[in-house]
Structures are given as structure tokens and as C-alpha cells.
């Protein structure tokens, strides 16, 4: 029996009367990689933000393992420790060095031994090719480097699940690969992940399951082969066609 890490049931989200997410149901098992695709403005970021309770929701439930996630809950900070979030624009803390960025939450929030976390952080930085950047400030790094640091920062919390919101969308093309490679490596390690991306080949390679969201609803889902190669609905076909170039 595989354990459900994340469960979203009948999620409904509105902004000022506009329905942004409508009856979204989703469960993610341990070790599963779910990729979410869909046109801009369809609600992908909002879904990830709801999962982290950065947005309040109108109805439905979101659970991490057995714990209900809702804005304003007492144990919210505790639950968020278990949800790693990586943002489109990295959101490193500009006043701290790379290593300080990574150590801050494990030391101050999880109260772990600084020395022990540092060792782990340095190992992870080495894995993503940034060992020599530990003492640099974010402003001294390229976009791709910043994003790899943001991933390491999330990993050092030992989260149950990682959420990625278009983490390569702000990068120059030559830097996209270095970030995607890190994520592929995480998938190989059987990390549980929900990834929002527009990189279709990457989705094909990394996903166990792909979800297509349109106008706040999950329109279609399946394995990468099913959804990306043989989409069933017209909307999915139309959307995927945007990524095809033929003479």
C-alpha cells in the first residue's frame, strides 16, 4: 500500500467572486512526481500557493499526510516545514550569503545543530555544483545558480514534498538545463514532487503523472505518454499544439 503524502479534495478558490480553482481533486503518493501544465492564468500557481496555505480557500480540504492545511491554523508553520516551495524568482534572502540562506530555517526553525546542517548543506551544494559559492551573496550569482541554491535551501528542511512553480521560467535558456537536471536527479532519488512547468520534454522525462489544468479545473490527467502523446480532449490538444513547431 502506498502512502498518500498530499491529498486535495474539492478545492475551491475565489478571488473577489471570480472562481480561480473549481473542485480540484488531487492526491500525490510518496515518491511520486506530478507535473502540472496549463495555459497562463489557469490557476497553477494559485493551486501550489493553496497547498502551502499562502492563500485561504473557500471550500474543500487539503491534507499533508493526516494534517489539514489551512490558513490561520495553529500548527501551520510546523506543516510548512514539511512542504518545500521553490518560486519562479528564487526568493533567496538578499541580505544573507548562500550558506546563511540555507542554514537559516533549519537552525532557527528546526533548532538543529548548525554544524550538522552545514555539513549537509555543503554536500548538497557540491551535488548541484555550487560548493565554491557558499559564501557568495545572491546578487553575485546567475539566475540558474540562484535557483539551484533555492532548491538546496528547500531540501535542507528535509521536506515530505517539494513544490516547484515554473522554476525555470525566469531563466535564460542556457541556464534552464542545469536546474532541470537537479530536479531530474531528485526524481531519481524518489522525492515526492509537484512541478508546474512549461518544459514539455522535461515533463515527459520526469513525470509519473501529468495534469492538464484549464480555467481552474483539472481537464485531463494521465501518464506522460497518455497525456502528452495521446491527449483525449480538444483543449489539451490545442494547448499542446502551441509547443509544436512544424514547417
Amino acid at each position: 500500500m502506498e502512502e498518500n503524502i498530499l491529498t486535495v479534495e474539492h478545492l475551491r478558490k475565489e478571488y473577489e467572486g471570480n472562481v480561480i480553482l473549481d473542485d480540484v481533486n488531487l492526491s500525490v503518493k510518496r515518491g511520486e512526481v506530478v507535473v502540472i501544465i496549463g495555459p497562463s492564468g489557469c490557476g497553477k500557481s494559485t493551486l501550489l500557493r493553496c497547498i502551502n496555505a499562502l492563500e485561504n480557500i473557500q471550500s474543500g480540504t487539503i491534507r499533508l499526510q493526516d494534517e489539514v492545511i489551512e490558513a490561520g491554523a495553529k500548527n501551520l508553520a510546523k506543516i510548512r516545514e514539511k512542504i518545500g516551495m521553490v518560486f519562479q524568482n528564487y526568493e533567496l534572502f538578499p541580505h544573507l550569503t548562500v550558506i546563511e540562506n540555507i542554514l537559516l530555517a533549519p537552525v532557527k526553525v528546526q533548532k538543529r545543530e548548525k554544524k550538522e546542517v552545514r555539513e549537509e548543506a555543503v554536500k548538497l551544494l557540491e551535488r548541484v555544483g555550487l560548493k565554491d559559492k557558499a559564501e557568495s551573496y545572491p546578487r553575485q550569482l546567475s539566475g540558474g545558480q540562484k535557483q539551484r541554491v533555492a532548491i538546496v535551501r528547500a531540501l535542507c528542511m528535509n521536506p515530505e514534498i517539494l513544490l516547484f512553480d515554473e522554476v525555470t521560467a525566469a531563466l535564460d535558456p542556457e541556464m534552464v538545463r542545469e536546474v532541470l537536471d537537479v530536479m531530474l536527479e531528485l526524481a531519481r532519488q524518489k522525492r515526492t514532487m509537484v512541478i508546474v512547468t512549461h518544459e514539455m520534454q522535461f515533463a515527459q522525462a520526469v513525470a509519473d503523472r501529468v495534469l492538464f489544468i484549464d480555467e481552474g479545473k483539472i481537464m485531463e490527467q494521465g501518464t506522460p505518454e497518455e497525456l502528452l502523446q495521446h491527449p483525449k480532449t480538444e483543449r489539451t490538444k490545442q494547448f499542446l499544439n502551441i509547443f509544436h513547431y512544424e514547417k
Binding site: E81, I83, M85, H95, L104, A105, Q110
Partner: peptide
């Protein structure tokens, strides 16, 4: 979003202010 970034690392309101926003 800096505040959100801090909170998504599990920081509470005080920690977010003290270590991320205030400096």
C-alpha cells in the same frame, strides 16, 4: 513574496520579521 518565502520555510511571524524582513 520575501515574507511568503520565509513562511514557506516554516518560519512564524516573529522569525520572518526578525530574520528576513527587518534586516
Amino acid at each position: 513574496i520575501q515574507e511568503e518565502s520565509a513562511m514557506s520555510l516554516g518560519m512564524n511571524t516573529y522569525q520572518t520579521m526578525r530574520y528576513v524582513i527587518l534586516p
